[in-house]
Each structure stands twice: as C-alpha cells, then as structure tokens.
Nucleic acid binder design. Structure first.
Length: 257
DNA sequence: ATGGTCGCGCAGCGA
C-alpha cells in the first residue's frame, strides 16, 4: 500500500502536474494540501476518471485539504473531531481508507515566533492530538500526513544556523510534534533514512531548489502497526522540477499489504 | 548588501 502526501500550492495551478503524477506514481492514497479551492470548484470527476475516490475540505483562496483513495474512502470527517469549536481554516480532513485511518493536514505556518499565528500553530497541534485521541487508538492503523511546517530536527534544514530565531525549528514546535509521537506515531521517512540533506520543500526564490536549500517539513506520521509494515519511502524530487511545479515535492511510503 | 518567486486576484499579502 502506497500512501503519499503533497502540498500542491493551488490545485487549480497544478492540474497538469497532479494527474500526471498519479499516473506514474500510482499511490493508493494521496493527501493533498493547499488546494486553495472551494468544495464546489474541486475537480472531483477528474480524479474519479483516474480511479480515485476524492474528498475535499476547502474554503477557496486559502488552505484546503483533500484525500484521494483507491482503497475505499469512508467516514469522512472535515475539521477537528475533538469536540471544540470550528477551526478558523480548512486544514484537516480524515477518512477511513480500507483499514487505515488517514488524515491530510495543513499545519499553520506560524509566520514569526511569538506571534498570534505562532500561538495558533501550537494550539492547532494540540487539537490534532485530541482529534486523534477522539477517533482512534494508537494500536490501530493510523497515518497523519501533510505539511507540518516543522522541521523535526536539524538534519531537516539545509543550514541550521540560518534558521536560528525562525519558525519551523523552535523547541516548542518540535515538542508539539513530539507530543504526537508520544501518542504513538512514527516519522515514517526518518525511520527508514537517517542522513541529513533530503528535503520536501524549497522556496521558489533565489534558485533554492537547485542550490539544495530546502527543508523536510512534509511528514507521514504512522502508528506502530503501520510502522511495522514499512518497506520504502521516497521524496519524488522530479515532481519539483520542470514546468510550473509546486514549491513542495510529493513524499510517499510503501507498506507491505 | 539586497533580494531574488509564486498564487491569489488585481494591490499587495502570504508563503
């Protein structure tokens, strides 16, 4: 079973690249972030034609998350299931894909350390844990995949010195991620590949992609029953090349069926 | 030394 995640930075702008990628990568489940579409504008039929069941949670213009599955797509939950109020953005969608509970998440960026946006980011991550606690046991198959806007450790940024004082690398953000891992989730890519220097996001500016100035912030966090089935993981850097790419590359994991 | 690109939507902001 292949599970993938991709921040597409506008699905409308990526409707050449995403179907093309689906046809050659053939994930069983794809988690999309930053669709920037309303639900009415989401191209359901284009994905159905490729053999995927789609579900979308959007608001238009900003944010927007989706799930595409060819292993079943049931019990769709948009937003948090933690019993709290509605989130201020369309940032999480969850569904059962076959026997696996899958969430596509777009964690708030945070903008600057200490800002209201940064506090929202930390609160959002606490709600994500409560959401999982409400829906699943860590002993069941769970995959939480998306753009976390956090580099889990210094191996995940091109130059740790360049990030001192910035968001994405603070102890508070990394602790919030550790809280999810404490619940029972494993960073699947990192569990298979230890060395520094493989990234999933590169700023469009200043040739950052070609200069290898990136960050690994797109993560697939899986519960232990899934971690035990892990066979392979890949960042598809080719999808960051060529005509009109997203600033993120897709990442996928392969699980023994 | 500075700013460098996209996408949104039509100015300038967010990433």
């Amino acid at each position: 079973m292949r599970i993938a995640t991709w921040n597409v930075n506008s699905l409308k702008a990526r409707m050449d690249r995403v179907p093309e990628w689906l046809e050659y990568a053939r994930p069983d489940v794809l988690c999309l972030q930053e669709t920037k579409l309303s639900d009415a504008a989401f191209p359901y039929m284009a994905f159905q034609a490729l053999g995927y069941e789609p579900a979308h949670h959007g608001e238009g213009q900003w944010n927007g998350v989706a799930l595409l599955s060819r292993r079943g797509l049931d019990d769709v939950v948009t937003g948090f299931a933690d019993g709290g109020g509605p989130d201020q953005g369309a940032r999480i969608i969850t569904a059962r894909c076959g026997g696996t509970l899958v969430s596509s998440v777009y964690v708030p960026n945070g903008r600057s350390v200490g800002s209201d946006h940064y506090l929202y980011k930390l609160a959002w991550l606490r709600r994500l844990r409560a959401h999982l606690e409400a829906l699943a046991a860590p002993s069941s198959p769970v995959a939480v995949c998306g753009d976390f806007n956090i580099a889990p450790d210094d191996r995940d940024v091109w130059d740790p010195a360049a990030f001192v004082g910035s968001t994405h690398v603070t102890a508070e953000e990394r602790d919030a991620l550790a809280e999810l891992e404490d619940w029972g989730l494993v960073d699947a890519f990192r569990s298979l590949w230890g060395p520094a220097g493989l990234y999933t996001y590169w700023d469009y500016r200043a040739g950052d992609f070609h200069e290898h100035r990136g960050m690994r912030i797109d993560l697939l966090l899986v519960s232990r029953p899934l971690a035990a089935r892990l066979r392979w993981a890949l960042v598809d850097r080719n999808a960051r090349k060529g005509k009109s790419p997203s600033d993120h590359a897709p990442v996928f994991i392969d699980l023994e069926d």
